[in-house]
Amino acid sequence: MAKSTVKFRDSAARAEQIEGDIAARRFAPVYLLMGEESHFIDRIADRIASSVLSEAERAFNQIVVYGKDSEAGQVINLCRQMPMMGSYQVVILREAQQLRGLEKLSLYTQKPSPTTILVVCHKERNADKRSAFYKGCAAHGAVLESVRPRDYEIGPWLQQTVRERGFAIDPKALSMIVDHLGTDLGRIARELDKLAVSLPEGTRRITDTDIETYVGISKEYNNFELCKAVLARDAARALRIADHFARNPKENPLLVTVATLFSQFRQLFTMNYLRWQSRRQGTPLPSDGELMKLLRVNNPYAVAEIKQSAAAWDNRRVFAILGLLREYDAKSKGLNAGGMSDGELLRELLLKILLR
């Protein structure tokens, strides 16, 4: 099977488009929601479940079945029924990847009923795009291919999601969420929901204090502050944060901390290389807009901070630190860790970086 060319940003845009059509009550007869990232799949399925039918209609015309407990013929028979006391019936097939004889659904998807909305939630992997089932969904319905984000894609997505909810978010607050929650879109969305109802009325900007108060992530002891301390060569503060991480290892996994430090030093390396290339070729440094793309950051303030920090770290040293971080990435996964705890490994790593 050919490798998919769909990117995370494509998935996010397609999910937004489908949700917009649902909000406008432009319904497709079939929705195939498939892929590794479950957040968009669950969000669209839940939106259909809560908005197509009225509460009274759902009792008669909304059916949820699970692939593990169903067969294709059963699902087809449900879809061919006529709605009772309404214009539509909604059939939601969850965990469709476990359905016995999924391909047989092509008997329905090639000619779906105009009075039924079938939602197929196919998680963990894509349905076979060569199959008659998929081709029927694509020809007569709406297909979402939900791709997992890479770590550098979370920040822009989070910033856009916050903006859509009517808020702005400070860079530090954004970094705290991304560093702490990683690429778990579902968990990030739940925390944003909690923030939206918890923030004082009239609040329009989310700060690090808000994240600490309502999400429970310390604004003093986090990867954002650790990176700042390391780049400023503030050994005392860096080690104090490391001690806090050691006392709270579940909330501050070493693997995430090492990845965050690696990303930070990779940005310094890129910035220093671009400066060297600019001097060598006698050309101007790329604009801040271009640097945002090259450095994978989402605001010009971050670019300014990287420029300032990079000036204090020459690339020979940065290159050696990147090698060191790769070594400790392996140790964080249990390779040649010598029985040391994550806290001990982090403290040793920081001392090597700061004393190098």
Results as ranks from 00 to 15, higher is better:
residue 159 Q to G: 10
residue 183 T to W: 06
residue 206 I to K: 00
residue 121 C to F: 01
residue 95 E to A: 09
residue 157 W to T: 03
residue 165 R to T: 09
residue 171 P to M: 03
residue 142 A to C: 15
residue 168 A to Y: 13
residue 189 A to Q: 14
residue 123 K to Q: 15
residue 139 A to M: 09
residue 187 R to V: 15
residue 208 D to L: 09
residue 217 I to K: 05
residue 185 L to N: 05
residue 95 E to Y: 07
residue 122 H to M: 04
residue 152 Y to T: 14
residue 190 R to L: 11
residue 132 A to G: 09
residue 136 G to K: 09
residue 142 A to S: 15
residue 145 E to H: 10
residue 146 S to A: 15
residue 123 K to C: 09
residue 200 P to G: 06
residue 212 E to G: 01
residue 165 R to D: 08
residue 169 I to K: 02
residue 188 I to K: 12
residue 168 A to K: 15
residue 139 A to T: 12
residue 136 G to H: 11
residue 105 L to G: 00
residue 174 L to G: 06
residue 211 I to S: 02
residue 137 C to E: 10
residue 127 A to M: 03
residue 143 V to S: 13
residue 219 K to L: 07
residue 138 A to W: 10
residue 121 C to N: 09
residue 170 D to L: 13
residue 98 Q to A: 11
residue 172 K to D: 15
residue 140 H to R: 13
residue 90 V to N: 11
residue 178 V to D: 12
residue 108 Y to L: 02
residue 96 A to K: 00
residue 157 W to C: 03
residue 137 C to Y: 06
residue 107 L to C: 00
residue 107 L to S: 08
residue 86 G to P: 13
residue 195 L to R: 01
residue 193 D to N: 14
residue 194 K to N: 11
residue 145 E to R: 13
residue 138 A to Y: 11
residue 105 L to N: 00
residue 123 K to Y: 14
residue 199 L to R: 05
residue 124 E to I: 04
residue 208 D to C: 11
residue 177 I to K: 04
residue 217 I to R: 08
residue 162 V to T: 07
residue 143 V to A: 10
residue 214 Y to E: 03
residue 175 S to E: 14
residue 91 V to E: 02
residue 124 E to V: 04
residue 99 L to V: 01
residue 215 V to P: 06
residue 173 A to F: 03
residue 187 R to N: 15
residue 108 Y to T: 00
residue 94 R to A: 01
residue 154 I to H: 14
residue 90 V to H: 09
residue 135 K to S: 07
residue 138 A to S: 15
residue 92 I to D: 06
residue 157 W to R: 08
residue 171 P to L: 08
residue 201 E to H: 11
residue 219 K to I: 01
residue 216 G to W: 07
residue 131 S to N: 04
residue 167 F to E: 13
residue 138 A to N: 13
residue 187 R to D: 13
residue 176 M to T: 01
residue 121 C to W: 02
residue 180 H to S: 15
residue 209 T to R: 14
residue 119 V to G: 01
residue 144 L to T: 01
residue 222 N to I: 04
residue 96 A to W: 00
residue 113 S to K: 03
residue 112 P to C: 03
residue 178 V to L: 05
residue 86 G to E: 08
residue 218 S to F: 02
residue 101 G to R: 02
residue 129 K to N: 08
residue 212 E to Y: 04
residue 110 Q to K: 15
